[in-house]
Design a protein around this nucleic acid. Sequence first.
DNA 1: TAAAAACATTGAACAAGTTCAATAAATACA
DNA 2: TGTATTTATTGAACTTGTTCAATGTTTTTA
Lengths: 193, 193
Amino acid sequence: MKDNLKEYISKYISLSESEMTDFCGLFQNKSVRKKSFLLKEGEICDFEGFVEKGLFRIYHIHPNGVEQILYFAIENWWLTDLESFTNASFSKLHIQALEDSEILLISKNDKEYAYNNIPQIEKLFRIMTQKTHIALQQRMMDNLSKTADQLYLDFIEKYPQLSQRLTNLQIAAYLGISHEFLSKIRKKLFISK
Amino acid sequence: MKDNLKEYISKYISLSESEMTDFCGLFQNKSVRKKSFLLKEGEICDFEGFVEKGLFRIYHIHPNGVEQILYFAIENWWLTDLESFTNASFSKLHIQALEDSEILLISKNDKEYAYNNIPQIEKLFRIMTQKTHIALQQRMMDNLSKTADQLYLDFIEKYPQLSQRLTNLQIAAYLGISHEFLSKIRKKLFISK
DNA sequence: TAAAAACATTGAACAAGTTCAATAAATACA
DNA sequence: TGTATTTATTGAACTTGTTCAATGTTTTTA
């Protein structure tokens, strides 16, 4: 039970057996059917999730109707709307399952409990946030400097297994280009799938 | 001494007087002349800094020679190359003073000491990293969806005092557009300065 | 398994932003 | 204060990517 979560945690911090049981006990399993939502714009995100199985997209719908995917979350990745979760503000994001999925959810209250009662947990999330921050900085710089061709090639090279599970529409929405243009890029690069 | 730093810290956590003295004692003051560097590409960033006075730019030079500014740091902002600092890897970034500046620096070792000996420090940096992460996500989404006009207007509205201290070259390098195009945008918008 | 829905491809016209080069204006500095 | 350097402006040609519309393909679902 919750073996992936325990393994993930152990990569970054050392917990006693009782602390581990205590902390992991705060997570509730939830099955999410393909296309259904964990969060919709306007709601307050009061959970953080660890994906055991499946695939989610975290995205924003711009005023002009265009969907921008902020990130994907697959097995052993975490997801939340950090802004809404942290500030208890209305979310600008949607979180939707793209496959039938299993996710472990911890509520904001239970996370607070963990911060206050298991000292190492503060460290765990500090390290996790650092890592995602580094990755996001890199993505930011890439997006501002690379052409769409390079962004696409980098993406399928960096996430080969994930890109197999996504439509080109979704990849385009992540890269921030139109799917028509992605199609033309793929043609130019002789990518057939 | 170090009043701004102490005030900053107190916004997020509560330290006893001795803890505060202990922690702030780990910071060394450094004067940095305009145009000189705190960090250059290829070096390992073993410090984190809190700006007391002045202005820095943290930027990357792309293979094609274009300078991309990742962020600016003014009074009461922190700066480091998080990736190089965290992983002790060679930095891809330059950190340069754009004005004569005063900065408080803490070494990686001393920060480790603080993490291990002052429990609340873990929380402080967890919260700080969360905040910058939220801001970076927002900037990411903006950059992918907004036109250069909007990005520029948003920037000068969000950072009115900072933008007064920057050249248009620097603002363009932050927004990820050419400075010629920024000039045309300013003309169109009737911005005279 | 047939119909509906979602996804992918292609072309043509267009818009946004870049590059290069020339010039002007402002700033730094000896 | 005058000269060198950096910064800003402008225009023309060009590149990258978008939008719209039409068509074909694949996947989902009743």
